[in-house]
């Protein structure tokens, strides 16, 4: 089983005629995703691999019944793209774009507050993938394997690292969610945990966090109280200096908050099996599952 995304999900790509958008739309289709069209304002009527390109998301929803959208537009236009998708009735949005102004995301978050039916993943994320079914975003499909572990991660390549190990450990993944590396994101760790909680076939979770903010702690407290299946965790940035942004806009230790050591200590206290090296994620999960 999976969460959020399966082979039936009707996906569109916003920015499908752009360089990134067209490349990854192609990859998504090749993986088996049910891509039903794309949107690029001004390019309506064109085709992308026989699929219709629309001028607006509204049109895509009307004409091809899209319910999910993957956004590959320049960061300056990304908030607009998210608002457009939400207004058109899209309920699952993966925003891959990196470099969206924080103030724009503040508005997006406020706008989504009274729309609990909308799940926004990202921005600045690799998207979602359900093995052998569908992917929205840029995760490489070949490292995934249908299985029982849910992956939630702030980082792209670290997600792949975890997926690869779960595949090699023969555990596989139910769904992988890259929640994104920005300070303000749609789906946070706790939301993702709650989403996986509803899926009986997900037997455990891998949670990959980073320095900055307290999103991991909030989820850990929830896990301690409600999530009874095994959870393996890793926090990147133990050697990161204070006050420096480590690539991801959200990965920064500021005001004495968000350092790795305190996150790791707290997560341990909440019963999460924390690994010191990302190379140990697969093995750690295997041990917990066998118990």
């Amino acid at each position: 089983m999976s969460v959020l995304l399966n082979k039936k999900t009707r996906v569109i790509v916003q920015g499908i005629t752009g360089k990134e958008g067209s490349f990854h739309a192609g990859q998504m289709i090749d993986y088996g995703t049910n891509v039903v069209g794309g949107v690029t304002p001004g390019k309506g009527g064109q085709k992308f691999r026989k699929l219709p390109v629309f001028n607006s998301v509204e049109e895509a929803v009307l004409k091809v019944k899209a319910t999910a959208s993957t956004i590959f537009v320049p960061p300056s236009l990304a908030a607009d793209a998210i608002f457009e998708a939400v207004d058109a009735g899209i309920t699952l949005i993966a925003c891959i774009s990196e470099g969206i102004p924080v103030m724009d995301m503040l508005r997006v978050k406020q706008y989504l507050k009274d729309k609990p039916e909308v799940v926004l993943v990202g921005p600045n994320c690799p998207g979602l993938l359900t093995p052998n079914e569908a992917k929205m975003g840029i995760m490489p499909g070949f490292i995934a394997k249908k299985g029982v572990i849910g992956v939630i991660s702030r980082s792209g390549t670290l997600t792949y690292e975890a997926m690869d190990q779960l595949t090699k450990a023969n555990l596989g993944q139910s769904t992988c969610i890259g929640i994104g590396g920005d300070p303000i994101i749609g789906t946070q760790f706790i939301d993702a945990v709650k989403i996986f909680e509803k899926d009986k076939n997900t037997k455990g979770l891998v949670v990959i966090g980073e320095i900055g903010g307290d999103n991991e702690e909030i989820a850990a407290a929830y896990i301690k109280k409600y999530y009874k299946k095994p959870v393996v965790g890793f926090i990147a940035g133990q050697t990161a200096p204070k006050g420096k942004r480590m690539g991801h806009a959200g990965a920064i230790i500021s005001g004495g908050k968000g350092d790795a050591a305190s996150k790791i200590a707290f997560m341990k206290k909440c019963g999460i099996k924390m690994v010191k090296s990302p190379s140990d994620i697969g093995e750690a999960m295997l041990k917990l599952i066998k118990k």
């Binding site: 702030r154 690292e161 990147a236 133990q238 990161a240 690539g247 991801h248 990965a251």
Partner: peptide, 14 residues
Amino acid sequence: GAGLAMATMDVIKL
């Protein structure tokens, strides 16, 4: 990748 880059630093220290 930023996350993997941080993790690489961490493991070198480890």
